[in-house]
Design a protein around this nucleic acid. Structure first.
Lengths: 198, 198
DNA sequence: CTAATTTTGCTAACAGTGTTAACTTTTTAT
DNA sequence: ATAAAAAGTTAACACTGTTAGCAAAATTAG
């Protein structure tokens, strides 16, 4: 029966339209302004329809977190592709990360904000792993191919530098000109790279 | 008239009891569970009384953010006092910062979470400045007393390292043993100090 | 083509939330 | 004692997330 197939397709489209509605509200008014009723209003269905696709509002947010990490991973991949040299790749990834954080504030904030209630499994999704793998593979190349136990720690450090500079800059916005901040970031990454084989 | 003085004192006590109630709820159930009604219930007054002291719920949060930075500043001061050598002071401050972030999760999350709606002036309070000054003064000593334009940038970098490692660790909890994480932090600070006069 | 069944969507409600207006009680000052 | 001011209360408004119960539509079976 092709009918169930069509049904599934329609269901999928409906789900997608829910996410699209939520995304447009979020980008316009912030995540706090996203409500199930507004979503239902935008997609032209009544309120409980949303619950056919998402168990609760948090589930929608988790979807956004996943999507955010896909976008971030894509940005990292694009950056990495612009060079063949691992060290240079890391610098490009750093730049891309910083730009993602500042240009996609809403995404970045729900990805790293207090949205995480209890270090739940939402943070250990495949998408977060993909992002990590992109960077870890680059680190491996820089270290000469082998993946010792230090590599994961180095990744941790690299990510911390990126997140720290990005988020402190988001909080202290306009305190430091963007150009200077970019230099600070590149300096920090340079130091990180030089110290990669300590 | 001593009567108005007594009144002011009672008002102040009432305000303090509101904050105390909010704090106890927050530490037990998280900031999201704090509601005006619960606060009113705990302090034994009706709901609008809270609005005699705080314009809205965000004002209560801002008070917590200020308080959080006082606690963080105190922790930094205590750490700094344990040594007379600036370089060692920075390491101790770093350790204290990390410990504050992990032990006072609720505070740290509202201080740096998505609680910041629009980079409002809430972030440029005296308390945040005090925390910054504690570290900047240490950096100045390390650089030989003068406060050039790089100092503020160095502070920015130092803070970013602390925040990055702390918050990434909060998100990826249990991914890396605490002891290792502490070593990574100290390594990063060591590198920062060695590079202080670049 | 009709009848039964499943799917789909709706209305309405519950239990909360922040916030404010209007009223009552208590306290103070004359 | 009485008028003025302060303090506190109840009750409502406009939202929120979430769910139960019912109506309509689409699909399947006879």
């Amino acid at each position: 029966m092709a009918v169930t197939e069509r049904r599934l397709k329609q269901r999928e489209q409906q789900k997608e339209s829910i996410l699209e509605a939520a995304r447009s509200i979020m980008l316009k008014e912030g995540w706090a302004a996203v409500s199930i009723r507004k979503i239902a209003d935008v997609i032209g269905y009544s309120l409980p329809v949303v619950y056919n696709h998402f168990e609760n509002k948090d589930a929608i947010m988790e979807d956004f977190i996943r999507h955010g990490f896909i976008l971030l991973g894509d940005a990292a991949l694009d950056a990495k592709a612009q060079s063949a040299e691992p060290a240079q790749q890391l610098k490009l990834i750093a730049k891309a990360y910083y730009e993602f954080a500042l240009s996609q504030r809403e995404y970045y904030q729900i990805m790293f904000g207090l949205g995480v209630p209890n270090c739940d499994r939402a943070k250990e999704t495949a998408e977060i792993g993909r992002f990590g793998d992109i960077i870890i593979s680059t680190l491996k190349q820089l270290q000469g191919g082998e993946c010792n136990s230090q590599t994961i720690l180095k990744f941790h450090t690299f990510w911390s530098i990126l997140h720290g500079l990005s988020s402190i800059n988001m909080i202290n916005l306009a305190a430091t000109p963007d150009e200077l901040q970019q230099r600070v970031l590149q300096d920090a990454i340079q130091g990180f790279i030089m110290n990669i084989n300590n």
